[in-house]
Design a protein around this nucleic acid. Structure first.
Lengths: 340, 340
DNA sequence: CCGAATCCTGCACGCGCGTGCAAGAATTAT
DNA sequence: ATAATTCTTGCACGCGCGTGCAGGATTCGG
């Protein structure tokens, strides 16, 4: 028989098997896999050798069941049209994994599906739910936190009024003031603000801050426009409808967009539908600094959130035992490019 | 006391609690939550009412532990720079969830991390591992499938020579023949092929098919170029280095890209570094039909994979008990736009 | 070399649910 | 009304590991 020398790991190898092979008890085997457990170097070595030979890895389901700690978080996303989501997912999963956390990705189909998605997460007994979608309005949040099925409910990259909810986000007011000031000092006169869907309390601060700033400095309220999703394609459609056919002097000289997704669609419309130039005819600003707008094509003036710091802080939140309010806001910085 | 009428679900509500409340045994409770279990409508109703009152949901960890079926898959991704990954993740998570499967998203940092990532998945005892990265070369796959820790190892949207591996992908040869024929009939003369990283057997068929087709029809081998990642930014850098400074007649008249990510960077270079027009001076084709290239800006001629059908088939693969080879290839279709 | 402090190791019990079977209840046929 | 079916329900046992403790092995000071 040309069998492998290593006995084949048919079926599940359990800690008991390893214990037998290593000549220790099962508990010693599990200790060998725990970070700072009290175990002698010799025992650990023996165990690890036996484990490798048998192809044993601890079963995290059983560990989680026994300890009531899963080291698993659910990431709820409902907004895949926004390229920024890809950046966030990459950053979050990378940093979470670095610290030993696994991520359950739940595609929340829409607002009506939010509860099902949360249910989904709770069935896996995740240690926390992280929301990076837009459709989670205050009502959904209230329902979710009321059910108390989650130890932690975290809103990432967005603020929320809801109690029982931890918000890790950039300071929208500070950020938008920086952008507004940039726009003003560059001498623009007729700005338009392009907002995303007005889900309750979502990114409302950005719009309000800009409008308030402008009114304070010029006494006039800028024109605004709204798109129902952070989707470049949809944004382009809306902007085409809004701007096409206007006489030159009825057009804004700068369009301040709530984020890059909207800005991309806007730039496309300015160039290809209106036949105008960016920024000479109409300038554009965004928010998020997604990779797509960093090239020579869009070259968008935008605002960068400190995503890595936010993700690292998220980990400390996950590991915190305290019951205090762990919400925190971060400051990013403007990234000037040629679009404005 | 202004307490809720519903007793508060402090701590974990277990099936026993529900059983007590509903006046049945624990097993009847669990049966009520099983799809087609033999249980009377009356009992189920009682159980469900009690469950809702107590806020009970079955614990999938325990269920998985007891049944050795987790209804969980791990999705390993290592290539977040490629916007197509966002599309795939959205489609896969949506369709998997529709059929009752949860998704563990594992960010595979690089080739050396592949084994750790797989380990990660195996600790959660997932029912299958789905690979949509590029760094999983044959060696990694062999190691993974040799360990036999996974019931199923699935390569999505890519072929693989490895046995013990299920590949669900588009037929690269057929696809590239379609593109090549399109290029030829449009009258292009000096094509260049832009390939991605040459991880073993990855998308090699596309390149080889195109080169073979061209040689067969014109007797000449087209120029080729290679980028180390499916990253528009990196592609732009490479193409700028390659094309800048060439006299007009030394430039290709069309650049056939292995996918859209490369094509986007290429178009940016043609326009902004070379100052030329697409498609008049140099045409471009892509692969994948990502949303970003559908607008008026890139308007890329590309190839669309039947992602939904592929994802649905993935589910049937997951649910299949058979041991036969479940690999299957799909045919997509070319999407002609203005870039070529 | 002895006693005390320190370090390791083994163990009973429980985490919440699935499996397969057997007994009980409800239904139908005779 | 009784027997034969079918439907419904309860249960012992196990899935693999964590917790806290107690006894044994080891080390150190004097």
């Amino acid at each position: 028989m040309a069998e492998d020398t290593t006995s084949e790991p048919m079926g599940n190898v359990t800690a008991d098997d390893v214990a037998a092979a290593a000549g220790v008890s099962r508990w010693t085997v599990n200790r060998a896999f725990k970070k700072d457990a009290s175990i002698s170097a010799k025992s650990r070595e023996k165990v690890m050798a036996a484990a490798k030979a048998l192809g044993y890895v601890p079963d995290l389901r059983a560990a989680s069941l026994a300890s009531d700690r899963s080291n698993l978080v659910a990431l709820l996303v409902d907004d895949f049209a926004n390229p920024h989501k890809l950046v966030m997912m990459e950053r979050l999963t990378r940093i979470l994994r670095k610290h030993g956390w696994d991520t359950l990705l739940v595609n929340t189909l829409g607002r009506d599906d939010a509860n099902d998605a949360l249910l989904n997460a709770s069935q896996r007994r995740v240690d926390a739910v992280i929301l990076i979608g837009i459709q989670f309005d205050d009502e959904v949040l209230r329902t979710a936190s009321h059910a108390r099925r989650f130890k932690k409910l975290i809103i990432f990259a967005r603020v929320s009024q809801n109690p029982n909810t931890i918000s890790i986000a950039v300071d929208d007011v500070h950020a938008m003031l920086e952008i507004a000031e940039y726009v003003r000092t560059k001498g623009y006169q007729r700005p338009m603000f392009l907002a995303g869907p007005r889900t309750v309390s979502a990114h409302l601060p950005r719009k309000q801050t800009f409008l308030a700033y402008w009114k304070e400095h010029f006494g006039s309220e800028p024109e605004t426009c709204e798109v129902e999703a952070y989707d470049p394609v949809l944004a382009a459609r809306v902007m085409a409808d809004t701007l096409k056919g206007r006489p030159r002097d009825a057009l804004p000289d700068i369009i301040v967009c709530e984020n890059d997704a909207l800005a991309m669609g806007t730039i496309d419309v300015i160039r290809h539908d209106l036949g105008l130039r960016v920024p000479e005819d109409i300038a554009v600003t965004g928010f998020d600094d997604v990779p797509q707008i960093q090239g020579p094509n869009y070259n968008l003036t935008t605002y960068r959130q400190p995503l890595t710091a936010m993700a690292e802080y998220l980990v400390t939140v996950l590991e915190s035992q305290k019951d205090e309010d762990l919400s925190r806001s971060f400051k990013g910085h403007i990234v000037p490019r040629t679009s404005a």
